[in-house]
């Protein structure tokens, strides 16, 4: 979503983005002329008249689980967004009985919060597990 019209979205997709991604942008490119939606989401810069790089993960109940907002010159890291969605999906599937520690990705161990884990995370989770 940006403040550009759908006409400009079409031009950008057809003339540039479709040369980067085969078949063009696979998801809808939304138009927010005037920045009303961006204002509600706290990403519209009134002075510049454009929206910052906001990214919101919204769950199946319509609840915002995560967001990230960057100023224009720095791009996002898409795989981090995917990792966060995978983590939220796992937590949701476990009905909140599991939590994903720092650096978690699919296949890595989760934590099961409860009285017996209090003060003992250091035994099961090492800082070296954050990286890789």
């Amino acid at each position: 979503m940006s403040v550009d019209s759908v006409f400009v979205h079409k031009m950008w997709n057809d003339h540039e983005l479709s040369k980067m991604v085969k078949g063009g942008v696979p998801f809808p490119m939304l138009s927010d002329g005037g920045g009303k939606v961006g204002t509600a989401y706290g990403v519209y810069d009134e002075g510049a008249g454009v929206e910052n790089r906001g990214r919101f993960i919204i769950d199946p109940d319509g609840v915002i689980q995560a967001f990230e907002v960057l100023t224009p010159p720095v791009g996002r890291h898409v795989s981090e967004t995917l990792r966060q969605i995978q983590a939220y999906q796992l937590v949701r599937k476990s009905k909140g009985t599991e939590a994903t520690p720092s650096g978690w990705k699919p296949g890595k161990m989760t934590l099961k919060p409860g009285p017996e884990l209090v003060g003992r995370v250091w035994e099961v989770w090492k800082t070296s597990m954050e990286a890789d």
């Binding site: 979503m1 940006s2 919204i58």
Partner: peptide, 22 residues
């Protein structure tokens, strides 16, 4: 419409403008 997508995970992305560089 956002609420038409209830029941699915949605990623909503804002960006400064078409034909910007990043």
């Amino acid at each position: 419409k956002l609420s038409d997508h209830l029941g699915k995970w949605v990623v909503l992305c804002f960006y400064p403008g078409d034909f910007t560089f990043v």
